[in-house]
Structures are given as structure tokens and as C-alpha cells.
Design a protein around this nucleic acid. Structure first.
Lengths: 175, 175
DNA sequence: AATTACGTACAGTTAAAACTGTACAGAGTT
DNA sequence: AACTCTGTACAGTTTTAACTGTACGTAATT
């Protein structure tokens, strides 16, 4: 019975990991990073690289790079234990806040970057258009220009929408 | 001069495609699909598979599968021209509305699916917990159970947040 | 009915991403 | 100072995704 319980739990653990990983992948995590995060999240107390490696059956190198990525996104934190040489990591609580804000940050900075790039190209094209005399080229250029205007607007709307989505603005009880 | 204009435009076209594709990739499009969409979007009038193939330097098969995906997501539409045998496709206008609603639909259905799966596993685990007597297993199971509750809540919040984001609810002038 | 034109299924190939093992730098221990 | 332990860079490998060419079903044309 004890053995069977153990199998059941182990099994459930695996299934949950698998399922929840799918959600986290939607936030832009790679399948590997997602599994790693869930492993940390379900584990009681922080883990060492070696533990992760063993838990997932992947190399320590993979864990090292994986955990670094999660760290950069603010999804995982390093934790200290006196007189313990190995690095320890744990998943941040507040799933919603952390994932959403990491996600939104990614969107905003990307959208803003692309918007700027396109705007600058827009300017370049505008200058050029004025010097045109070839009718057909002119028409082509104009068409492209109009599309670029739409793209810029598109990025602006994205930024607006995602700004509203940010849980730092709204308050959620906790997680 | 005409030649130079041509090069300039061609060049600008390429750069814009590249840049805007990056944004569309954030909506979950593959790089290939993103490029295909932008190509259609920038082209005046609808295109045939052969035209796309030539424009992107990829096989017609790729175009066929690519365009089908875009079609399924409601980002591209098929268009008719009397007495013309080839299929014609064009990018939908209203970038914002189309991308956002396709995106949100994807999120909502995924989040909902995962939530249901986890909830059902949660139920399974709950039944099981009551039959436990081993102290340590019990504690483990309980810890897992609590995490699963959090996951369910997480999915609920996601659904809520993305529902608000849907441009079908809000009105945007156009695009 | 025969022929041509078109789109897509499918198997095979090529390109990209994920992962591993070794090797090494730096910190800690003896 | 020599030695041990830990994390990571890097090159090479494996796994996965993207892409292609051929072959075929269907619809239009003759």
C-alpha cells in the first residue's frame, strides 16, 4: 500500500508537471525551461543543480543554463543557506504576478523596439518619396508607406493593451 | 536613378518584412508563417501560391501549408476572381483586431483546457488523500494538492485577464 | 474522354534547437 | 600551496522542426 501510494503520487506529480508546463510554454518558455520551473515549483524547499538534474534526467549543464534563464526572467530566485557550498534555487511564489509581469515586460520592450525601428524607416522612406518622379515607383512607395503607418499604430495599440494587463497596476490578493 | 529607386524600395521592403515579422512571431506565429503573412500584407492585391513561393524563395508546398495555418487563424482570407483557376489569398485588414482575437482565443482555450485537466486531477488526488495513513506521504500529497489549487487559480486569472484584452469587447476605430 | 493545371499528402532531406561531456576557472577546504 | 568541489563555456552530438520534390487526386479545359 505504501508503495502504491508512492507510485500514485509520483505519477500525479509527473502528470501535473506535464500539464502545467503547457501553460507556462504559452508565456514563451521553452518546454525544457517550463518543466524545470514546475519541478522547482512543486518541490518543497530549494533545489541544487544536481537535484534538478536528477529529477529531470538531464545534464547539469542544461540545468545551469535553464535556471539562469528563469532567473533572468525573475521567475526563480537564488537562495542562501549558511555553510552550504552549492547554489540553491527556488521558484518564486505569486505565479500570476511574476509570469504576467515578465511576459508584459517582454511584450512592451519588443513592441516598443520594433515600433521605433519602423518609425525610423518610415522617416527614411518619406524623405525618399519626395525625390521620386517615376510614377509607378512613387505609387509603390506610397503603398508601402501607408502600411508602415498601420504597423506603427498596431504597435501602439499593443503597448496600450498590454500596459493595462500588467498586474503591477491592478492588485491581486496574492497567489 | 530608376534602378537605384528600385533597389531602395526592394531593400526597404525586405527590412520592413524582417522587422514586422518579429512582432508577429510574438503572437505565436512561426518565423516562416510570420514572413509569409507580412509578404501578403505588403503586397497590393491577393497572391497565388506560386507568387508567394517566388517572393519568399521557398517551395510551393511550404506556401500551401503556411497559408493554411494563417487561414485557420483567421489572419488571411481566400479571395475569388472570376475565370481564374489559381487560389488567391490576401492578408486581412485590421491587423490589431485579427491578431489580438486570434491570440486571445488561443490563450483562452488553452488555459481553460489545462485548468479542467488539473481540476480533475485535483479531485482524484483529494479522494486519494482521505485514504492515506502514512504520515509522510500524506504531507507530500497535501503539499501537491495546495500547489494544484494555486495552478487552478492561476488559470482563472489568466482567463479573466485575457478576456478583458479582447478587442471584440472594446471598440477600436479600425486599423 | 483525354489532357492540362492546380493544390496537397507524404517520405526524405536539410536546417535549427536542445542537450551532453569535457575541460577549465574560481572558491573553499585541508 | 595543493587539493577538492562547483558552476559554466564550448564543441560536438542528438533531437526536433522546417522545408523540399515527387507523386497523386481533383477540377477545369480541349
Amino acid at each position: 500500500m505504501v508503495v502504491k501510494d508512492h507510485h500514485f503520487l509520483e505519477d500525479m506529480h509527473t502528470k501535473v508537471t506535464h500539464e502545467f508546463s503547457k501553460t507556462l510554454e504559452m508565456f514563451g518558455l521553452t518546454p525544457a525551461d517550463a518543466r524545470l520551473f514546475v519541478t522547482l515549483y512543486l518541490h518543497q524547499g530549494p533545489m541544487t543543480l544536481d537535484e534538478m538534474s536528477q529529477a529531470l534526467g538531464k545534464s547539469k549543464t542544461s540545468m545551469s543554463t535553464g535556471v539562469r534563464g528563469l532567473l533572468d526572467q525573475g521567475l526563480v530566485e537564488r537562495v542562501w543557506k549558511k555553510g552550504f557550498r552549492k547554489d540553491l534555487y527556488q521558484a518564486n511564489e505569486n505565479l500570476y504576478r511574476n509570469f504576467m509581469s515578465s511576459y508584459i515586460k517582454k511584450w512592451l520592450s519588443a513592441a516598443n523596439g520594433q515600433k521605433n525601428t519602423i518609425e525610423s524607416m518610415e522617416g527614411e522612406l518619406k524623405d525618399r518619396i519626395q525625390k521620386y518622379n517615376n510614377q509607378e515607383e512613387m505609387q509603390r512607395a506610397d503603398q508601402l508607406y501607408r502600411r508602415m503607418e498601420d504597423m506603427v499604430r498596431f504597435h501602439e495599440w499593443i503597448a496600450e493593451a498590454f500596459k493595462d494587463l500588467d498586474p503591477s497596476n491592478i492588485e491581486h490578493p496574492s497567489d
